[in-house]
Computed example of a mutant assay.
Amino acid sequence: MKITHTDRLGNKLTEASGEQSVEIEIKGEFGFEDILIFETEPGAFVEIDIDPTFNKSIVYVPDGKVVYQLPVGPKARAYDPDAFKGESHSISMSVVPQEELTKRRNLAMNSLDMRWDTGYFPHASANVVTRDEPWFEAKNAIDGHLLRDGHGAWPYQSWGGGLRDDLVFRLDFGREVLIDEIIIYLRADYTDDHDINWESGLLTFSDGDSMPIKMEKVEEGQSYKVEPKKVTWIELSELKREISAAFSALTQIEVFGKDVL
């Protein structure tokens, strides 16, 4: 396995390799839109630690490669202002043992996800993003950050679709997983009624099943248990709120279960 650091044009700057794990030390500040490339065996599960401000993530890599371009400009406002800053950077990747994959965990979390198709999983997408602003992209709902008593850029990034009534959020796992619980954290910027909770929605599963859900105006996560089922994706749709002029958004979705190996 290998980690390569390049500039935005693909010119190699630093590289490190290993068998079951690899760590790269990058000295000096990152350049504008530098790229980090993680290479492993096709179909591997790896844990990537890309920055101290990111949650470590277990990523499924069907093609054996993760290409991550560092966010700059407006894109960076969906992340901690200290992300990728400083004169020294330690980045690592390691193979995830099979016994870890068969333990129950949150299968949705991927702090390295990006808006468009990435080729690695889990991956979140949506049919609408408010004003196409990065802090309202679907990926924010699986980054592992739960602060939700405000709205907008970091630390309140969320998935939001404005005042639309036709919103669809999709989470792709990229392979078959066995799930038993979904936890939804609604954004809770309830001060001055900026936010209102979605009152109902529909969870749809890749196996053809669907489950209507009710949601409440609370700050804690709302749990929905399901009979253990094998799926490759889930969708959240048919989202309804009482007041059409108030915003609703999804701060985080967690999907608990385990891999099917």
Rank of each mutant, 00 (worst) to 15 (best):
L101G: 01
G162L: 07
W135A: 04
P62M: 11
I37Q: 08
N55M: 11
G161R: 06
L101Y: 00
D132H: 08
K240A: 05
E41M: 11
Y120V: 09
H194N: 15
I243C: 11
I35L: 05
W159P: 09
S223M: 05
S244A: 12
A245C: 02
E33G: 01
S17P: 00
I48H: 08
V96N: 03
F247A: 05
I58V: 15
A141H: 03
V231N: 14
L171P: 12
R241L: 15
Y156C: 04
K225M: 04
V260Y: 08
F45G: 02
G221R: 00
A124N: 01
K230W: 03
I196Q: 10
H89L: 13
I48M: 06
G86F: 03
G10K: 12
S88A: 11
G18D: 04
V231Y: 10
N11I: 13
F84T: 03
E87K: 15
N106C: 04
F30D: 07
M211G: 10
E220L: 00
K214H: 04
V168M: 13
N55E: 14
R170H: 11
T204L: 06
I184H: 02
A124K: 03
M109W: 07
A245G: 00
P134S: 10
L250K: 12
K2F: 00
E100N: 09
E216L: 14
V128H: 08
F32Q: 14
S17T: 05
R131K: 14
I91Y: 11
I179D: 07
D192R: 15
F121G: 06
D207I: 15
L250W: 11
Q222M: 04
E227Y: 05
R115T: 02
F38W: 06
R115M: 01
W154F: 15
D132Q: 08
I35W: 03
T102W: 00
V128T: 07
D49S: 05
Y60E: 09
L13E: 06
N127F: 09
L261E: 15
E41W: 02
G144F: 05
K85N: 03
S223C: 02
M215R: 00
D49V: 00
E47V: 04
G64P: 14
E254N: 08
I3M: 12
K56P: 13
I24Q: 07
G28S: 05
E176V: 13
V226N: 06
F30Y: 14
A78R: 00
D49M: 01
N106G: 03
S111F: 13
Y68G: 01
T4Q: 08
D195L: 14
G150L: 09
W116R: 01
D7M: 10
D172K: 08
F247N: 05
N110D: 14
T130F: 15
G119D: 10
T53D: 00
Y68T: 04
K217E: 13
S57R: 03
I91L: 09
G201S: 13
W116G: 00
G160Y: 14
D113K: 01
R148F: 03
D51T: 03
L261A: 09
D51M: 02
W135C: 06
M93F: 02
D34G: 10
I58Y: 12
S237Q: 10
E238R: 09
H123T: 04
D192G: 12
A83Q: 02
K75Q: 06
E29C: 02
Q157G: 12
D117C: 05
E216R: 13
